[in-house]
Amino acid sequence: MVWEYLSYVINQWNGNVVVMGDFNEVRYKSDRFGSVFNVQGAEEFNAFIADVGLEEVPLGGSSFTWCHKSATKMSKLDRFFVSNSLLNSCPHFSAITLERFLSDHRPILLREINFDYGPTPFRFFHHWIELDGFSNFVSDVWKSAPGGDSVRFKEELRVLDEKIDKKDGSNELVQRRTDLIKNINHLDQIRSMDLAQKSKMAIRGVMVDGEWIDDPMNVKREFFNHFRDRFSKPVDHRISIEMQYPKQLSYEQQADLERMVTKEELKAAVWDYGTDK
């Protein structure tokens, strides 16, 4: 079978690998429009990708890379794959589809761009410290995290190296040192896989009116405009009811409700929150 042959060829290449082209197969049902989705074919394709240790480069732009001349059938047949080792060393790979010209397939441009959206907001409420078990919770999470174990292992490895250098190391210490090195390498692999996964899930751009936008400032603006429009007050006029009420606000009270808030009132409200907000 073609997948077995490709697996054999790729396994002959040691190190960084890039595989691209028209695979004439899709991975998911959403990759086809207007044509039948072959479940068995997709399963074999995904099994091949997993067996050879490849990761798909996230694709921006059009969702489909092939289109029938009648525009009634479209599929995502063209892809870029890279080896895990290459993705760990170059986590900022991305691909974007270009406009079709003569072929019924869209060209794909592979590039490495680091999209900097600025620092991630971090918020901490001081009242958390007063909760029962908070300190133990933080300590347990730190110890269970790969980064925390890595720091602890590396410190222990430093102490062992000092003892071995002074010729005070027994066979047990040497064996412990070997075990620590294995653990540190394993944790580093997990951390690299985590970074690669975060890179795959990162937002690289957004399609707006048929145009692919990837500049961080423009992407932020499009997201802001989208959610502002979704949650803004409707512009349509509402129905008013013409009837008399026995109790009504005075004109002074109505004006007081609708007046602008002063800077002094804002300052007083913010200052009343306390120093930990």
Rank of each mutant, 00 (worst) to 15 (best):
E156D: 11
D214A: 11
G147E: 12
S199P: 09
Q12P: 01
V82K: 13
D132G: 00
G41L: 02
F45I: 03
V9Q: 13
G205H: 07
H127N: 09
W271Q: 11
S35F: 01
W271L: 09
E222K: 10
K198A: 09
D149V: 10
D214V: 02
F137P: 00
Q253F: 00
H68F: 02
N114F: 04
V270M: 00
N183V: 02
E4W: 05
Q197A: 14
S7H: 08
G147K: 09
D78M: 03
F122W: 05
T275Q: 05
F153N: 13
K263E: 08
R123V: 02
E55H: 11
K143Y: 06
G210L: 07
Y5W: 11
K166M: 11
I96P: 04
L109W: 13
G205E: 03
Q244E: 11
H127S: 09
I190S: 12
M20S: 14
E264T: 09
M193C: 10
N88T: 03
P146H: 08
V57R: 09
K233E: 09
R27A: 13
Q253P: 00
I181W: 07
K29C: 11
V159T: 14
F81W: 12
D209G: 06
I113R: 12
V138C: 10
F137G: 00
E211H: 12
D51L: 03
R191L: 14
N84V: 03
L77Q: 10
H92F: 13
M201F: 11
T275W: 00
D51H: 08
N218R: 15
C67A: 13
P234E: 10
Y273R: 08
G41I: 02
F224E: 10
V159Y: 05
I181K: 15
M201V: 02
Q189P: 01
A71P: 00
T120N: 07
G205K: 04
D104V: 05
S62H: 15
E265Y: 02
G148V: 01
H105A: 08
D209R: 11
R158G: 10
K76G: 04
V52H: 06
L195Y: 04
G61F: 01
E56N: 10
I129P: 00
S94W: 02
G41W: 05
G21W: 03
